[in-house]
């Protein structure tokens, strides 16, 4: 029974579509509109400026710095969290003692708010009295200035992000590992394959769909996770840890320029569209069991 117009279905969808229209589709369209306009304040009448905001953007060294940071942030967080997540899942899924406790330890950062744990990490990273510098001093090394040194600060953020994310991704690998058949492993062992070979030839290829799913989520997070910046560095020193979303926030709510913030948001939307496109292509190819 295929109805052309199904009133009941649309009524059921109405609340969801209305809310999503108001807070996803409409603001997306408004972002594009705003990026082509400018006014001194939010109450003043905006005037159409065409691509002027984008010309400004191309000349803005902070914008390029932020993009570069975001690139390294993604490179730094995504592969390492995924590798650690796989390792954790294999450990927890294996015959290790206290696997439940270990799983709990790995997973706990996932349910803790980024903003409050950042306060604890701020102590770990503080120069001299911080935990990391104290530990390093006890083995005779002068610790770096984790958050104050522009060459070090982004790496410090990356380390904390990996800590926050890896246990979350572990869960998906754990779910996938539990669906793999034990016979496959028995057979491989009978053939005399070592642990590394088993991982490379059996486990890793079979986990490919999960890796894709996690990869996309990790990429999205690399652009979405900025909470810890508010506590640890506020984007500094000298924009060394400023990321695109944080810059959007600063522009809109500290520098009060919603038009330029919208222009930056357009760049973010383009990046997200690219990620969506990559996802479609990858999932279309269906990297599955050969």
């Amino acid at each position: 029974m295929h109805k052309r117009f199904n009133l009941k279905a649309w009524l059921l969808l109405l609340p969801a579509l209305l809310l999503l229209f108001a807070f996803t589709h409409w603001p997306t369209m408004r972002t594009f509109w705003r990026s082509a306009n400018w006014a001194k304040t939010d109450v003043a009448e905006p005037k159409f400026v065409g691509t002027e905001n984008f010309a400004l953007l191309l000349d803005d060294p902070v914008f390029w710095k932020v993009l570069e940071n975001n690139f390294w942030y993604a490179i730094g967080t995504v592969p390492t969290s995924i590798a650690l997540a796989i390792l954790m899942a294999i450990w927890v899924n294996g015959k290790i003692r206290c696997a439940g406790l270990l799983r709990l330890a790995f997973f706990t950062p996932t349910i803790l708010p980024m903003i409050t744990v950042a306060n604890i990490w701020l102590f770990f990273y503080s120069p001299d009295i911080g935990l990391f510098d104290q530990l390093l001093r006890s083995i005779g090394i002068d610790g770096p200035n984790w958050l104050g040194d522009p060459d070090m600060a982004l790496s410090s953020l990356i380390i904390m992000t990996i800590w926050k994310e890896a246990g979350f991704f572990m869960i998906f690998y754990l779910a996938a590992l539990q669906t793999l058949s034990p016979e496959l492993y028995q057979a491989a062992r009978l053939e005399g394959a070592g642990p590394w070979r088993i991982f490379r030839r059996i486990t890793f290829p079979l986990l490919m769909p999960t890796t894709l799913f996690v990869l996309i989520n990790a990429l999205l997070n690399a652009f979405k996770l900025v909470d810890h910046i508010f506590i640890l560095t506020k984007g500094g020193p000298n924009n060394a840890t400023n990321l695109l979303l944080y810059y959007i926030y600063e522009t809109a709510f500290s520098f009060l320029d919603s038009y330029y913030a919208a222009t930056l948001t357009v760049v973010m939307l383009v990046i997200l569209a690219l990620i969506a496109f990559v996802q479609m292509v990858l999932f279309d190819r269906k990297i599955h069991y050969k």
Partner: peptide, 25 residues
Amino acid sequence: FTGRGLALGLILMQLMVMPEILIVE
């Protein structure tokens, strides 16, 4: 019903364009 795929597509857009991204608007 006609338009089901479209409705699903419009809804799933929120998975990519999360509310965090649209704070300005």
